[in-house]
Design a protein around this nucleic acid. Structure first.
Length: 608
DNA sequence: CTATCGACTTGTTAATATCGGA
DNA sequence: TCCGATATTAACAAGTCGATAG
C-alpha cells in the first residue's frame, strides 16, 4: 500500500510541474493538454471505494496543506459611532471596543436580555478593559450600545445594496481563498477540506439553558494552532512574524489542524469534507456495522427480554435501557459535568423526573410517558405502551428515589457499550439508531411506493418514508415563520391551476364540437392541441397538490439530519434505480458528492 | 473504577445563493 | 429584472465512544 501511495504522490507532483511550464511553452501540443484533462477528470471521479483500505490503523501516508485561514483582524469603529456610558459618550480602547461590538451586534436577539448571558458577557468584557475603563464601567445596564447597533445594521444594509460588480469581486475573492486553502493533498489525491477557516472571536451562544452563554470566545492566533501534516510535505507557513504552537506528523488521526477552545476547554479540528475518502470510508463502514446488527438483532432482542428477569439489578437496568434504545431510538446518554453545559439527557442518564408511569391510560395498559430535553435541548415527548415486564421493572427502579435521582443508577454508557461489544463486534448504542433508521426507510419505501404512481407521487412516498425515520429519531423543527403564508400561496396557485384546468377543458370541448361539425384537418389538429393542454395542466395541478401535501406533513419535521447521517444511501439509490427516478430528485449536489460511493455501487436490488 | 481527554459524528441555526413568478 | 420564498451551505455546538491516567 505504502509503495502505491508514494508512487501516486509522485505522479501528482509531475502534474503540478506541468502546470508550471505551461506559460513558457506556448506551442505545447494538444495531446498533452488533452491527456492532462483526462487525468483531471479521472482524479475527480476517483473511486476510492474500489481500493484497499489501510489495515494498520493509519489514516494516510502523505498529507500536505496550507494551514487554516485566520479571522480578519479587528477594525476599530469610525469616530462618529459612539458608545455611551451613563448617558455620556465614552471612547473605548480597541480591545474593549471589539468585545463591545460583539454585544452591540446582538442587541435585537433575545440572548442579550437573559441574565446569565449578560452576567457572563460583562465579566469577560471587563477583562478586556483598561484599568481606567474597568473603574468607570461597572454596570452593564448603564451601557448604551444602540448607536453601534445601528451602525452595524446600516453596514449590512449597505452590503445588500452593493453593485453587482462589487458582489462579484467578493465572490471571486472567496473563490480564490477556497482554491488556495480549501484543499489538501492526502496520499495521492486532492481533497476538499471541510472547515478551513478559523472561527472568529465572538460571544458564545450555547443552546438551551447554557450556563456559559455570553462568555467571550477568544481570538485564535497561529500560536494556538497545532498543525498536522506529513514530514515530507511542503509545510504550511504561519503568517509573517508568527509561529505555530506545534507541528506534528501523526498519521493515526485525520485532522489537519487543531486548537483548544476557551469556553469548554475542548479541542476543535480542521478536517476533510464529507466527500473525501477518509470520511466516506468511515461512513460506509458505519452502515456495514448496522447491517451486521440486522443479522443478529433477533438474538440480541431475545437476550435483553430474558435479562428483564435477571436476579441482578444492574442487568435488568441494562436490559430495559437497551430496550428503549432499540425501540425508541434514544441516544446513549453520557454523563455530563454539571454547571458546564445545559442540562440534557439521553437514555442512560435519564432521571426519575423524566418518566411517568401509567398502569392504564385510555384503552392502553402499561404506558410510559417520556418528557426530557435531549441533545441540543430539543424536547423529547412520547407516550408509549411497553411490555408488562418492562413496566414492572421501571416501578422497581423508581422505588425510594427522588425526582432528580438517576433512573438507571447501576448503569452508564461505558457499561452498556462493553456489554454490546460482547454481543457483536463493533456494536455500540448508536448503531441501533442507524440500524432502526435505515431498516425503517427500507420497509416504508416498500410499503408506500406504488408502481403506477407518477414520479412526483413516488417522491412524496419517499419523503413520507424519510419522515417516518425523522419522527423515530425525534428530528423536529419549529414550523418556519413563514409557513402559514407559504401554504396559502401554494393554495392560491392550486386554485388558479384549477380554474385554468376547467377553462382548458371547456376549450377542448368546444374544439371537439367544432371538429364534429367541420371534420376538417385544421379542427382535428386543434382538438389535439387542446387535449395536450388539458393533460399538461392536469399534471401541473397534480404536482402542486403533491407539493402541498408534502409541505403540510413536513411542518414540524426536519428530514436533513436523518438523510445525511442515519439512512444507508444505498437504500435510496436502489429505490431510484428501481423506479427510474433521477437521483437528483432525492439528493442535491452536496449530497451526491457525499454519497458518490453509494450512487456508484448500489444496484436496484440492493438490500440493507 | 472514575475522571478526563481526544477524535470523531451528529445536530441546529444563521447566512447566503438560487429560483421562479410578477 | 427585481423580489421574496426556498434551498443550500457554513458555522459551530453538542453529542458518542475509546483510551488513558490516577
Amino acid at each position: 500500500h505504502d509503495k502505491k501511495a508514494k508512487k501516486r504522490k509522485h505522479e501528482y507532483e509531475e502534474d503540478e510541474e506541468d502546470e508550471d511550464i505551461k506559460p513558457k511553452k506556448k506551442t505545447k501540443d494538444k495531446k498533452v493538454t488533452e491527456g492532462k484533462k483526462a487525468k483531471k477528470e479521472e482524479e475527480e471521479k476517483w473511486k476510492w471505494w474500489e481500493e484497499e483500505r489501510y489495515t494498520d490503523g493509519s489514516k494516510w501516508r502523505f498529507l500536505e496543506h496550507k494551514g487554516p485561514v485566520f479571522a480578519p483582524p479587528y477594525e476599530p469603529l469610525p469616530d462618529k459611532v459612539k458608545f455611551y456610558y451613563d448617558g455620556k459618550p465614552l471612547k473605548l480602547s480597541a480591545p474593549a471596543e471589539e468585545v463591545a461590538t460583539f454585544f452591540a451586534k446582538m442587541l435585537d436577539h433575545e440572548y442579550t436580555t437573559k441574565d446569565i448571558f449578560r452576567k457572563n458577557f460583562f465579566k469577560d468584557w471587563r477583562k478586556e478593559m483598561t484599568s481606567e475603563e474597568k473603574s468607570k464601567i461597572t454596570d452593564l445596564n448603564k451601557c448604551n450600545f444602540s448607536d453601534m447597533n445601528e451602525y452595524f445594521k446600516a453596514q449590512s444594509e449597505a452590503r445588500k445594496q452593493m453593485s453587482k460588480e462589487e458582489k462579484q469581486k467578493i465572490k471571486e475573492e472567496n473563490e480564490r481563498l477556497l482554491q488556495e486553502y480549501g484543499f489538501c493533498i492526502m496520499d495521492n489525491h486532492k481533497e476538499r477540506i471541510g472547515n478551513f477557516r478559523i472561527e472568529p472571536p465572538g460571544l458564545f451562544r450555547g443552546r438551551g439553558d447554557h450556563p456559559k452563554m455570553g462568555m467571550l470566545k477568544r481570538r485564535i492566533r497561529p500560536e494556538d494552532i497545532i498543525i498536522n501534516c506529513s514530514k515530507d510535505s511542503k509545510h504550511p507557513k504561519p503568517p509573517p512574524g508568527t509561529k505555530w504552537k506545534e507541528v506534528r506528523y501523526d498519521n493515526k488521526v485525520t485532522w489537519l489542524a487543531s486548537w483548544t477552545e476557551n469556553i469548554q476547554g475542548s479541542i476543535k479540528y480542521i478536517m476533510l469534507n464529507p466527500s473525501s475518502r477518509i470520511k466516506g470510508e468511515k461512513d460506509w463502514q458505519k452502515y456495514e456495522t448496522a447491517r451486521r446488527l440486522k443479522k443478529c438483532v433477533d438474538r440480541i432482542r431475545n437476550q435483553y427480554r430474558d435479562d428483564w428477569k435477571s436476579k441482578e439489578m444492574r442487568i435488568r437496568q441494562r436490559a430495559v435501557a437497551l430496550y428503549f434504545i432499540d425501540k425508541l431510538a434514544l441516544r446513549a446518554g453520557n454523563e455530563k459535568e454539571e454547571g458546564e453545559t445545559a442540562d440534557t439527557v439521553g437514555c442512560c442518564s435519564l432521571r426519575v423526573e423524566h418518566i411517568k408511569l401509567y398502569p392504564k391510560m385510555d384503552d392502553q395498559e402499561y404506558v410510559v410517558e417520556f418528557d426530557f430535553l435531549g441533545k441540543d435541548s430539543i424536547r423529547y415527548y412520547n407516550k408509549i405502551p411497553v411490555e408488562k415486564r418492562v413496566f414492572k421493572n421501571l416501578q422497581l427502579f423508581l422505588e425510594n428515589k427522588q425526582p432528580e435521582d438517576d433512573l438507571f443508577d447501576r448503569l452508564n454508557t461505558s457499561i452498556l457499550n462493553k456489554h454490546l461489544q460482547e454481543l457483536m463486534d463493533g456494536l455500540t448504542a448508536k448503531v441501533f439508531r442507524t440500524y432502526n433508521a435505515s431498516i425503517t426507510l427500507q420497509q416504508q419505501l416498500k410499503e408506500l411506493t406504488c408502481s403506477d404512481d407518477s414520479i412526483p407521487a413516488k417522491i412524496l412516498s419517499y419523503n413520507r418514508a424519510n419522515r417516518a425515520v425523522a419522527i423515530l429519531c425525534n428530528h423536529q423543527r419549529a414550523p418556519p415563520k413563514t409557513f402559514e403564508k407559504s401554504m396559502q400561496n401554494l393554495q392560491t396557485k392550486i386554485d388558479e391551476k384549477q380554474n385554468q384546468l376547467s377553462a382548458a377543458r371547456k376549450q377542448l370541448k368546444a374544439a371537439k364540437a367544432d371538429h364534429k361539425a367541420s371534420h376538417d384537418d385544421k379542427s382535428k389538429k386543434a382538438v389535439e392541441v387542446k387535449r395536450k393542454a388539458v393533460q399538461r395542466i392536469e399534471e401541473q395541478l397534480m404536482k402542486l397538490q403533491v407539493q402541498a401535501t408534502d409541505r403540510e406533513e413536513n411542518k414540524q419535521i426536519a428530514l436533513g439530519t436523518s438523510k445525511l447521517n442515519y439512512l444507508d444511501p444505498r437504500i435510496s439509490v436502489a429505490w431510484c434505480k428501481k423506479w427510474d427516478i433521477p437521483i437528483e430528485k432525492i439528493y442535491n449536489k452536496t449530497q451526491r458528492e457525499k454519497f458518490a460511493w453509494a450512487i456508484d455501487m448500489a444496484e436496484k436490488d440492493y438490500e440493507f
